[in-house]
Design a protein around this nucleic acid. Sequence first.
RNA 1: GUGGUUGUAGCUCAGUAGGUUAGAGCGCCUGAUUGUGGUUCAGGAGGUCGUCGGUUCGAGACCGAUCUUCCACCCCA
Length: 437
Amino acid sequence: MNKLNTPKGTRDFLPDQVKKRNYIFDTVKHVFDLYGFVPIETPAMELTETLMGKYGEEGDRLIFKILARGEKLKSALESGKETSMAEEALRYDLTVPFARFVVQHQNELSFPFKRYQIQPVWRADRPQKGRYREFFQCDVDTIGSDSLLNEVELVQIVSEVFEKLKLPEIVVKINNRKILQGIAEVVNEPDRMVDITVALDKLDKIGREKVEEELLARGVSNEAIQKLGYLFENPGLTSIRNFVATSEIGMKGIEEIEFLFSRCNELGIQSIAFDPTLARGLNYYTGAIFEVVHPDFPSSICGGGRYDDLTGIFGLKNLSGVGVSFGADRIYDLLEQKDLFPQQISNSTQVLFINFGDTEAKQCILWAAQLRRAGKRVEVYPDSAKLKKQMKYADDKSIPWVALIGEREIQDQKLTIKNMNTGNQESISISDFLQKL
RNA sequence: GUGGUUGUAGCUCAGUAGGUUAGAGCGCCUGAUUGUGGUUCAGGAGGUCGUCGGUUCGAGACCGAUCUUCCACCCCA
């Protein structure tokens, strides 16, 4: 047999897996609905120029580009122009296409626009646990409103979704880019905010010494690193407040995060935590940033933040948005690992009609049709195969009732039904059977 | 993108120091049971050992390349 395979980092989904995935999608959709978010979809591919430069250097490298075809490829090869080699690319996330969508359809939308979007994205990353090249994101974003109530709402949504998914151990880590900017200003490295935060982000992973090494390697001055030492020793919100007191933007970030925490506390939301080391790579974030982690999973299962000017690059200024993205595949892996999918997830067939031959099948499809009109899920075995095979089919699919319709049953106009769980069998009229189901 | 790791039957894995016909469990098929699945018993099918090349009298095993898997880094859902 030939060795068949899907491309690296991609997978097939068997019926059982699709049902479990749908359980996740249905759960998030249900919560999104409760808050008035509406669904949109965008194409799998975007123009390459729409995506390039939005995710930083690393992100650009991970974008799957679609090779030009025919004449275009030929002339691109001749001219040596790399940009015309691939004018289209697979989407890398749902946020940038959403920004493009908002700008393009601005006159058809009413703001603030609250949308959700559940679609696959593609990244040319190296696969490992919880990391795929094709995976689904479930994005919720509100665009066209500066209000911090949107941040509050997103935290509510996140905590509600994970509560419904029976994952109460999650922690919503929260930080604010403005605080990070403030820190950078205070240590006199205002242009090194990203370098500082990326290094800080690794604090709990590699320790203080290594972080300081990395800061130095990234070109942060010794003096600045010394000042940052205070943060390593005093990571709480109040000490950071003191630290950035002289920075206007830093104080703005502190106020924002305090507002968010106050409202969440009043709403009784636990499992949120201020994390000053949380950075997040995507460089379009400007305010609050979120990340959801679970103690039993190595990477984040949800992430997001506020972006003040994402639509600006597409020509629509002054439109702030905030959103989060649920990583459906990681959540799937986590639920599977913890065995948390509900048992009653499948609505499988309720009755299988055994096929004893053409004459008998004729009666079967009539009775089956009658049951289906009453809303029952019914199958008629298509071939007059050996009884053993048909019974095994019912068993494999966990079909609880098997109806055996042979000569005798047609004669008496009664079904012989067998309960596959108990093994009991009885003769019954179609209307009585319907009652029983 | 960097470093490492894995690949033997549909699945999970054995395979000893290179040496005849490559094994097990589970699953699958057939029969015991021609109108009865899940249990039991008896039998059977299924592998050019990821692929290509090399070393050797001889390679599943050793070497190289490539693909794949998983892991760490980078980055991220």
